[in-house]
Each structure stands twice: as structure tokens, then as C-alpha cells.
Amino acid sequence: MSDREGLGASSSDDDLSLPKATVAKMITELLPKDVVCAKETRDLVIECCVEFIHLISSEANDICEKESKKTIAPEHIISALKALGFDQFTSEVEDVLKDHKQQQKDREKKVSKFEQSGKTEEELLAEQEKLFAASRAKFQPSNAPQ
């Protein structure tokens, strides 16, 4: 009997995994060209990653509960990494978080430009069609100089 069975884990716990093709691609990119990775090794890497995610999530949840919060924030993940002795990963995680926040701001700017136009989607589509029609008319062979 495994630890999971002993803890009464549901069968949905067994369904949690990472995409095998993605993990295999990452492993292949990291290994020298003359080294291959056995299927069992790839599966073990996936299990380790899932277990790591469980560990970090559980610790972050504990930190979150101690702060009387109901949502795990990125800061809880960083605190969990530190609490579990993975300090060496925190600066990279903070960099990724900063990049993610910037990407979100960039997406919001794009949405705001649409909203700032003051036009409906239908009006913008109609304008686009007029521009396409004008462009087609300009470059049609019948209008070409002879």
C-alpha cells in the first residue's frame, strides 16, 4: 500500500500530472544531443515535479491560512520556497512574477486602446472592411497602368 492509499487519496489525485510531451521536450532540450532519456526516467521526473508542486502548494496554503487569507498569492509561494529551504529559486521566481505582471499590464493597455476608441466592435469592423476594400481596389490588376 502506497502513502497515497494510506492517506485515503482519491483517484482524482492519480489524474494529476504534467503533459508528457512538454516534459519530454524540456528534457531533450536540456540534455546533450548524444544522451537520451528513458520513458521511465521521464515519468519519474514528472512525478517529482508534481510532488514538488504539492509540497510548495501545501506550504503556501499554510502560510496563507496563518495570515487569515483565503487566496494564495505569489508572495505566499515565495515565502513557501524560503521556508522549505529553496531560497536559491526565489530570485528567479520573483523575476518571472515581474515579467508576468508586465505582460498583464501590456494586455490591459491593448484592451484600453479598444475602449478608448469610443467605437463599438461593429463600427471598427466596418472601418476595417472599408480599408480592405480600398486596398483591394488600389491594387487590382484592372487599375494597373498600361
Rank of each mutant, 00 (worst) to 15 (best):
Val35Thr: 08
Val35Asn: 01
Cys37Gly: 02
Ala38Gly: 05
Lys39Asp: 11
Lys39Ile: 14
Thr41Pro: 02
Asp43Cys: 12
Leu44Val: 11
Val45Lys: 01
Glu47Leu: 11
Val50Asn: 04
Val50Gly: 01
Phe52Ile: 04
Phe52Ser: 05
Phe52Val: 04
Ile53Pro: 00
Leu55Tyr: 00
Ser58Thr: 06
Glu59Leu: 09
Asn61Val: 12
Asp62Pro: 04
Ile63Ser: 00
Glu65Leu: 15
Lys66Trp: 08
Glu67Leu: 15
Ser68His: 07
Lys70His: 09
Thr71Arg: 02
Thr71Cys: 01
Thr71Glu: 02
Ile72Lys: 00
Ala73Phe: 06
Pro74Tyr: 11
Pro74Asp: 08
Pro74Lys: 05
Glu75Gln: 05
His76Ala: 10
His76Leu: 08
Ile77Asn: 01
Ile78Glu: 07
Ile78Lys: 06
Ser79Ala: 12
Ala80Lys: 00
Ala80Gln: 00
Leu81Glu: 02
Leu81Trp: 02
Lys82His: 09
Leu84Cys: 10
Leu84Glu: 05
Gly85Ser: 09
Phe86Leu: 10
Phe86Tyr: 08
Phe86Pro: 00
Gln88Val: 15
Gln88Phe: 11
Phe89Ala: 06
Phe89Gln: 03
Thr90Val: 13
Thr90Glu: 08
Thr90Ala: 11
Ser91Tyr: 07
Ser91Gly: 10
Val93Arg: 03
Glu94His: 05
Val96Leu: 14
Lys98Cys: 06
Asp99Tyr: 10
Lys101Asp: 03
Gln103Lys: 14
Gln104Glu: 09
Asp106Ser: 13
Asp106Leu: 13
Arg107Trp: 11
Glu108Ile: 13
Glu108Met: 14
Lys110Leu: 15
Val111Gly: 02
Glu115Met: 11
Glu115Gln: 13
Glu115His: 04
Ser117Gln: 03
Gly118Trp: 07
Lys119Ser: 12
Lys119Phe: 12
Glu121Val: 15
Glu123Val: 02
Leu124Pro: 00
Leu125Tyr: 00
Ala126Gln: 06
Gln128Asp: 03
Glu129Tyr: 07
Lys130His: 07
Phe132Val: 15
Arg136His: 10
Ala137Gln: 07
Lys138Val: 06
Phe139Arg: 04
Gln140Gly: 04
